[in-house]
Design a protein around this nucleic acid. Sequence first.
DNA 1: ATACACCTTTACGCAGCGTCAAAGTCAACA
DNA 2: TGTTGACTTTGACGCTGCGTAAAGGTGTAT
Lengths: 255, 255
Amino acid sequence: MEYTVQKLGSLAGVSTRTLRYYDEIGILKPARINSSGYRIYGQAEVDLLQQILFYRELGVSLDSIKEIVTAPSFDGAQALKEHREKLLEKKEQLEVLIKNVDKTIALTEGRMKMSNKEKFEGFKKKMVDDNEGKYGKEIREKYGNAKVDKSNAKLMNMTEEEHERVTKLAEEVQETLALAFATGDPAGELAQKAADLHKQWLCFYWTEYSKEAHAGLAQMYVDDERFTAYYDKEQPGTAEFLRDAIQIYTGMKNA
Amino acid sequence: MEYTVQKLGSLAGVSTRTLRYYDEIGILKPARINSSGYRIYGQAEVDLLQQILFYRELGVSLDSIKEIVTAPSFDGAQALKEHREKLLEKKEQLEVLIKNVDKTIALTEGRMKMSNKEKFEGFKKKMVDDNEGKYGKEIREKYGNAKVDKSNAKLMNMTEEEHERVTKLAEEVQETLALAFATGDPAGELAQKAADLHKQWLCFYWTEYSKEAHAGLAQMYVDDERFTAYYDKEQPGTAEFLRDAIQIYTGMKNA
DNA sequence: ATACACCTTTACGCAGCGTCAAAGTCAACA
DNA sequence: TGTTGACTTTGACGCTGCGTAAAGGTGTAT
């Protein structure tokens, strides 16, 4: 049986370019060249190619393969052992690399956490200051100094984990509130869920919860334009809607 | 502080070619080009180069490094994680390769052993045949059929390990004998060591050892030209020398 | 003026092919 | 017989990350 490049290629699963290259580097020469210059391979070449591809599978360089398959006296096993050593070395290098990459990732994430923590600390401080600056006076008047200080202290002692939870809660309040607002019913399921979420959120800041205080705060959302602006920023009327929902939730008003 | 290519190169431990290449691919461009066309780097470039080299150490491709260091918003940690995945994949591939190489080596050695065993079996058979053909008649006459057959049987049952030991022993006999022959003294230490090694060697073939038989064999080495030729092939007179040494060793002759 | 160290651009080489491009060959079909 | 389409050939560039000249301009000290 005789083969042209493509036939041999498809037989062995390599490209014609590969066969031409192997001819070029002298690792697999065709049995003969026909009158038109075509490469013609025979059975011996098929066998040799199998061998070559076998060693190639093992990652041996074509140069080494050449030595192995062309010199019959060449110690193939020894060559393979040396190749194995090289592979082992490569593997060890890779392991070191991976370790270092891991370290770097850990460091980067560590810094991220640190940086987040710093941001968070800054955020907490700012929040307390804001509270003081914006609402300090009236809140202190309403609830007394001790409570406000305690609330601030709670805020400052909040762990990052708690902060994440409370941030997420705040988002949930917003989302649920937006959906509820679309229903237009402050006594509806969604609105009551929003009120409940709002209570949960509030409990992160308040040292003690009471329905009255909750309803009072809800009223303040409507009375104080700073809060109103915050809640109404997506949909005007949301602050009022939330107050109604909370008043129903706390039982201060009937549905 | 400003740096030319060489100064920056020696500072960072890279070649000037590398710096030019980094300029070429746009990963590290000099701060400015002076009037003579020289590349001039500043502190910012030193820092950037440090970063580049850091990622290079981790095996990241220059293309990826470019993305990491040029786009400030690019998620370096994410890129590193993806890189880590690639490294892990490479490592696994390597492990598979190593396994296959191991298998191949084991197979090859298995075949080698088989082939050696076959060779060895052939060798044993040939040795017995030779013994029969060459010396069978006279040895049978001298020592009787039973002993010769037993000797042959012992030979055929010799394991490969034993065969190696006996081959090595034969070599040692030759070496020691050559050294001893140079001293010219068959009663000397070396000659007596050679005689002793010869006895050990003999014991691999003989089912029972006696001083008389040993001395008799030694005499035969001189009488029979086939043996003489074997021992004298390096130095004429060696067979005779060995006989004398053995006769002294066995106490058949006084030093 | 000259030597010497430094700089520049240009370009080949490395491994193992992939991927055109231009041109010749072969069998079949109209 | 001409044409199409599948196949072949050689030749050459491209990929990575530089090493290593080669040929020529600069800077500074002697």
